[in-house]
């Protein structure tokens, strides 16, 4: 089993994801260069955080035209596990692999801090090690993490249990004061209909070791490892 971490120009959480898989999960992992057109041999691909292509135009808007994305699309179409974190989530939405969009935070400022997110769906490949309703503590670090989609899309996500994570307080209460960026229904992470693609704004790769402030991120990444085994 092997993880791949895509490196776009401007990715800056690629190394963090790489270390999280290699040093904490103790799983094989390799970088995938953005100009690569072949992603065979990987079981899970991570689109990491950062500012791919400078996030010119819109976050993730240029990355979707990257050569590697055709191969990634095909990989996902064949059922490969694909997770986009932060900028990776933005790229997934821009590419149409996940619905909706991530617009500027409602405060119009970058936010970096630990937040709590409630696990809404604990049966997915990305969350089955969590309990339903569990509040996970993970950092966010973004300027454009305000999840937006039209009413029909939101309804479809909600009705089909495709909301993975929702911003909440430490007790798991979901309300406006626990919503850091204005996301509709406090949505912090979603999955596709098939359940093999996940996108989330919080950074599980930053919450893998107690010394970094938390280990809840392990539940997410470890879920993938166990599902793949």
């Amino acid at each position: 089993m092997k993880f791949g971490v895509v490196q776009f120009p401007g990715s800056n959480c690629d190394q963090d994801a790489y270390y999280a898989v290699r040093d904490v999960l103790k799983q094989p992992v390799e970088y995938i260069w953005h100009q690569s057109t072949d992603v065979s041999g990987f079981d899970c691909i991570i689109l990491p955080g950062g500012f791919s292509y400078g996030d010119y135009l819109r976050t993730g808007a240029v990355a979707k035209f990257s050569p590697v994305m055709n191969a990634v699309q095909e990989f996902a179409a064949n059922g490969g596990k694909l997770i986009g974190i932060c900028n990776g989530f933005q790229i997934l939405c821009e590419s149409g692999l996940l619905p909706g969009a991530l617009i500027a935070n409602n405060g119009l400022r970058f936010i970096c801090k630990y937040v709590n997110v409630r696990v809404e769906n604990n049966t997915s490949a990305f969350s089955h090690k969590c309990s339903k309703g569990q509040a996970l503590s993970m950092p966010i670090a973004h300027h454009g993490g305000n999840y937006y989609a039209d009413a029909d899309t939101i309804k479809e996500l909600e009705d089909n249990n495709r909301v993975l994570l929702r911003y909440c307080d430490e007790r798991g209460n979901v309300n406006d004061s626990s919503n850091p960026n204005g996301s509709i229904n406090n949505i912090a992470g979603i999955i596709n209909a098939k359940g093999n693609i996940a996108g989330m704004m919080p950074h599980p790769e930053r919450a893998m070791e107690a010394c970094l402030g938390g280990t809840d991120g392990k539940l997410i990444l470890q879920s993938i490892v166990e599902r793949l085994h």
């Binding site: 999280a20 400022r109 936010i111 950074h203 930053r206 070791e209 970094l212 402030g213």
Partner: peptide, 16 residues
């Protein structure tokens, strides 16, 4: 101020 700065990237910050 500091919440506007990414102070965690590179995952080495062990006192925030």
């Amino acid at each position: 101020v500091y919440e506007q700065y990414d102070h965690m990237v590179q995952t080495n910050t062990i006192i925030l």
